[in-house]
Design a binder for these strands. Structure first.
Lengths: 215, 215, 215, 215
DNA sequence: GATGAATGAGCCTTCATTCAT
DNA sequence: AATGAATGAAGGCTCATTCAT
């Protein structure tokens, strides 16, 4: 066993040797509750008390029992949402051949996902947007998100080398795309009437013009 | 002004009949400290204790004395930064004639401002990004920021009508621009080596391509 | 036995009609784990969670099942260690004739025991040293330890009456001896390099001089 | 100002540049309450809640306000008691010339002190006896106690070199003395009828015989 | 017998605010 | 104006215990 505090998750993981998506029902339920609460009140106001209440638990102790602290829970939330997002968006991208079509699919796919899972995306944007250099485990986590972005940056670069995209700093472009999407996510949280799919098409058009090689 | 009880600000306002930028020295000092602290640790972790310490005050009571609660202080911070930003960016825009040049000046101006006042922009992005529909006074405040944006949206619309810009949803475009700028602000907080002026030029190019009428 | 509800121990006791040292394997295993944990982290920090972990149990519920609460477990630990200590030290004492030799054998025997079972003695010293007048069952227990001491006090008295020992308050002497030994036990916990047998010889010399009839 | 948490004590200390015995009234009051509570229920059960109640405070937050955590409070308690003990015992020792008389004065002085301030000694024995290698600040503290002991050990050594004391390991002797005294302290906590001054005289006799050069 | 989940109380800490001075 | 003390709520976390399976 480990040194200090062994949690249900750690035990489960140790037994199965499997990563976190082999959740016990309760863990998944708590993660789901956390996603809803974070989407509703934001990262910092998402207290264990509120999450426990949403999850139908009688005490916050139960969350501490299942997770090795707040950071661990947040990590699980991010993991869960990334898993969902990847499964949702990736196939929609891989259908396409041209870099331009793939970029469009990426943007529209993210906003379709938002339309179907508004809380999930709101939660991850809240968490990643409020991270500071506090917990080392969480910082390592930011690295993962960065690596994700790097993969997409590489796609942009390839498109440029292929002559399909014009000349621009691919990191700046990628961040602008990400920022625009996340902004829609944030607004959708407050404004349920927002037509996110329409916004997706508009953004896809926008960044198509911004990336296309001038004809 | 507000609900509960009389504060120094209210008294000052009543006396002078002037808006808030005629601050007492203490108020300005606290606002400045708040800006630094928010930039450093974020909106939620910017406690009165930390702000008082930064301001060289020996007790948080002083802040409560000068401001009608946390929201009031935050409002003042936003007001102050908006005033600074407006004074910095507006002249740089008005120098230009064409809409394209003005858009470029707006983007690059914001990032020049970031280069000179990194904490100010970081603070306002933190605050506005963490606002929820909690306090009515703050919500009214978000309206102000929205109105600011609306003015710029109107500029985009005019440029379109003038045939200078191509066809796009000006709200989506404006938010994408804002989001891209704010993202640089956020990153600059964590990464002091980031070349924000270069990013400004890149973003200006990016949104130039995205808005220009195809030739 | 106690007030509230039926435990495994009670069942076992009822079945066999035997006292507690006819333990089930599990009970003994838990007691052994408790001894180690108490020696390592102290009485108050020795939580069921840590003990269960050390014992290779997956839940603290098992401990509650086998013992009627924390006090019951602690009582068992003390009983077990006393049994061990008595079996170890008593024969070494009874070999000798003179009171002085028996006293020396007692002191050195205790520290030999410490050398061989450091955790056992550390645990009992921790427990008995942290007892308060809280639980009636535990207080009755302190009486047992006191009775043990009384037996040795009687030996001192006999030695005095036999003219072998000089005049002193045998209770104060006995407590000083006990305290000196326990102090070595405590230090040995933190300092593994301590030569406890050498300390035993020194203490035996010391108390020999303190008790001997002046020649 | 300092980085993380500034407490009332730190502020006071910074202002005056004086060590902790320049206490604010509340600090001293809390320390006094802590001493009583620790003496009564022991180190680990002495919660902020109990101490606050004893001090007549309405919330534990007040203690956190005045002290930088539990360890800081405990450190203050130990400092306070050591100061008291030193002021009480040292003059009684320095009156005497011979090492034997000084040793006797030390032992009896400690127990006279116990008779007058039973809670103070109980508290320090509780705290120092329950310290583990957890907090570095507290460990440094144990070093102070050790240094105190070293001074007295040196006295024993001098007495041996002067031919006044017989041959023994001065560290073992000193620890035995300390342990015997602390044991009386512990017992006095539970048994208010104990005649501690009588015990002091007995212990002084005991260790006189144990140290004296055989005639 | 054994397990993992659940409970409720208690812990220390931080927070914004209030108030007497 | 300014201070330092005080308050009460809320925060995350650990604990011994209970219970259904």
């Amino acid at each position: 066993m480990q040194a200090k505090n062994s949690t249900a998750k750690q035990k489960a993981t140790r037994k199965t040797g499997q990563p976190s998506f082999t959740e016990s029902g309760r863990r998944a339920q708590i993660v789901a509750a956390a996603i809803d609460v974070i989407a509703e009140v934001g990262y910092h106001r998402a207290s264990f008390a509120k999450i426990a209440e949403r999850a139908g638990l009688s005490s916050t102790g139960m969350i501490s029992y299942h997770f090795d602290g707040r950071d661990d829970l947040m990590r699980e939330v991010v993991t869960e949402v990334m898993r969902l997002a990847d499964g949702f968006v990736r196939p929609r991208i891989e259908v396409h051949e041209s870099y331009a079509a793939r970029l469009r699919a990426s943007i529209e796919g993210n906003l379709d996902l938002l339309a179907e899972y508004p809380n999930h995306l709101a939660a991850i944007v809240e968490i990643l947007g409020n991270l500071r250099g506090e917990d080392p485990g969480m910082v390592a986590f930011l690295g993962t998100a960065e690596a994700n972005l790097a993969v997409q940056v590489e796609q942009l670069r390839k498109a440029q080398r292929a002559g399909e995209f014009c000349d621009f700093d691919p990191w700046v472009m990628m961040r602008a795309i990400r920022a625009a999407i996340d902004d829609v996510v944030r607004r959708a949280t407050h404004d349920p009437d927002l037509d996110v799919r329409a916004a997706g098409r508009e953004l896809a058009d926008l960044f198509d013009r911004a990336t296309r090689r001038a004809s």
